[in-house]
Design a protein around this nucleic acid. Structure first.
Lengths: 353, 353
DNA sequence: TATTGGTGCGGGAACGTTCCCGCACAAGAC
DNA sequence: GTCTTGTGCGGGAACGTTCCCGCACCAATA
């Protein structure tokens, strides 16, 4: 074939890729014409266009993305980093089902729109991605006044987050309707007989958690029910499960009859904790977890979950991102997506035997 | 500052980046000289070098990676895809702790070596990453005769996997010592009194699982113990837990006194299944799971796990990849890394009361 | 026949780097 | 004073695209 292909089964070393000019020469055309033919642009006769395409196909031509990007001035690369875990080494955030799915959905949606997602491990220095030419960066779960976000904005890089960050020019967000989610979950529990629900929520300053807290307070007042809350300091299964234990062993009060956990925790671990403390689910205790964890389906009983719908968040975010990057639209800066309650046996009162 | 900066707080629109020539002009030098100064190459007087560096710093110069890559002929981009899940939409594989950590560690290690990792969602068409100019692709957990692997090799793209793929030129692998892992786990169980251990393993043809099966058989023969195995058809918590239930309810035989699960399953779910079937862990049943799942630490009792050490696999793989990409070393094609047994309460026989 | 307008294609610059050269100058050897 | 050798720096091509032009050609109009 080419002058580079060797005889026999030897490993052909560098394998020089076929370029636009190679196709042009082979087809007896100019590179301009071939380029226009392949891209569907320019004024070309159908015959020439087809000739160019056929030759390119036959020669196995694949355009060099780097050259394209250089010419276009944009690399079609999107960085992806998780703010909350910025201090921890590796990308431990991927072990959280929410982030795992958010990450995956972001990558999939972006790829369909022609953008590649580059994983930026939490804890990596920003200097390490200095030479990456990212068109934008997705910061998942940024902390308040996130230094990563501020650094990127200062460098002129558009930032997208899954938490609302108002008032920062260049920052865009998609968030879930936290208040609506809490109300929906509490309404559901109440319909199934809960009168002493207890909320477990992280003690964090993100808009999401403060809204959860506020919505819960309002709901309790509106329904004339006592406001029971346990706040946990850190994320992770350990602290959250301890928070659940605290919530389920009230001192000097009635035991709760429903549990709403608005923090990532392994469903079977929460169930195990309840069982250890003598609760029978769902007879003594209705359980709803905010979680994307698939193990919720496989526990006994299966656990009702409130999904923050990371796929929907990712899709909306990427669509918005593409709009901003390609058409310069800057409004709106934020969007809300609804949550989804997946009702399973853990929160449904069994008919009395 | 520049002619592009506007007065007041208006959002400065395109923000033209400062290029090498800009620095050169400002410093009264040529772009060649500035380039050499910043890269530490060429023959330059210390004064000129410092002058160039200082000017670049002052102007906030950041080299354009795309131009660099075009010039270098390599994009320093590595694709990352999971073979086993190629048919499933999204990147559900990230929900598996093993893949989550493998993915994160790959990204972190690669970034330190100057390569960016691009997430390629399982189920995405190869045509979607056709215009990505990937220097190499990491295929996590390829299936036998993986079409993705074969397609990439045919296109001349080096492939790295975390499973051994022998005899394919251009394919490199890092794998764990499956036989050693099984022996270590079984020895541990035996030391703690297990005489009727049962193995749960996927019914798959990967080298890893066949080796697990073979090592188990040999070990049983060597220790004169009955060979008890349950093979599960599919991955996922549901099938594996059902496999565990099968393993724990032998028909017409003694109940097993130890359980070794060589398949990703949620530790609390496995424990729950054992409990449902009337086992007390660790008194009636010693449990060892092959898992990276952090919930193993938080169950009651905590579960002994056999770690496949995704971080070590990723590091070794990326190091090898860089060697191949930058120095053309093609040997060896494969490496083995040892596993690690983290002994916790679930596999330690309590001293008799 | 000369002028216009439209069509089909190609030449060449540009994107921002890196790197191979070559040139000017200085210092040492004869 | 000429010839070599070495040092310090810059000119310009190249990486592989895309896209703005301009040129040649043809048909229709004046």
């Amino acid at each position: 074939m080419t002058e580079a292909s060797r005889h026999g089964g030897q490993p052909s070393p560098p394998l020089p890729r076929v370029r636009l000019v190679d196709v042009a020469r082979e087809a007896g055309l100019s590179k301009t014409t071939v380029s226009a033919a392949l891209n569907g642009t320019g004024r070309l006769s159908p015959e020439v266009r087809e000739k160019a395409r056929e030759t390119a196909r036959r020669m196995g031509y694949r355009p060099n993305a780097t050259a394209r990007h250089l010419r276009a001035g944009r690399a079609r690369l999107i960085g992806y980093v998780v703010g909350e875990f910025a201090a921890t080494p590796w990308t431990t955030f991927l072990e959280s089902p929410y982030f795992a799915r958010l990450t995956g959905a972001t990558a999939a949606t972006a790829l369909r729109r022609g953008y590649a997602v580059v994983l930026l491990p939490a804890g990596s220095l920003q200097s390490e991605w200095a030479d990456l030419s990212l068109d934008a960066v997705v910061v998942a779960d940024p902390v308040a006044d996130d230094p990563v976000v501020e650094g990127l904005l200062a460098a002129g890089v558009p930032v997208f987050t899954d938490r609302s960050v108002e008032g920062l020019p260049g920052a865009y967000w998609v968030d879930v309707d936290a208040g609506g989610a809490v109300r929906e979950a509490l309404d559901h529990l109440r319909e199934h007989g809960a009168r002493r629900p207890v909320l477990v929520v992280p003690d964090s300053t993100t808009r999401f958690h403060t809204e959860v807290f506020a919505a819960h307070r309002e709901w309790c007042a509106a329904h004339d029910l006592p406001e029971r809350v346990v706040r946990v300091g850190e994320p992770g299964n350990g602290p959250v499960v301890r928070g659940v234990e605290t919530a389920l062993t009230p001192e000097g009060r009635d035991r709760p009859d429903a549990l709403l956990v608005v923090a990532e925790a392994s469903p079977p671990l929460v169930l195990e904790a309840a069982r250890r403390l003598g609760y029978e689910v769902p007879d003594d205790l209705l359980v709803v977890l905010v979680s994307e964890d698939a193990t919720a389906l496989h526990t006994e009983p299966p656990v009702t979950t409130l999904s923050l719908r990371p796929e929907a968040v990712a899709e909306a975010g990427v669509e918005h991102l593409v709009e901003v990057l390609e058409h310069g639209r800057r409004e709106p800066a934020g969007t809300l997506v609804p949550t989804r309650l997946d009702v399973r046996a853990s929160s449904v009162r069994r008919p009395p035997a």
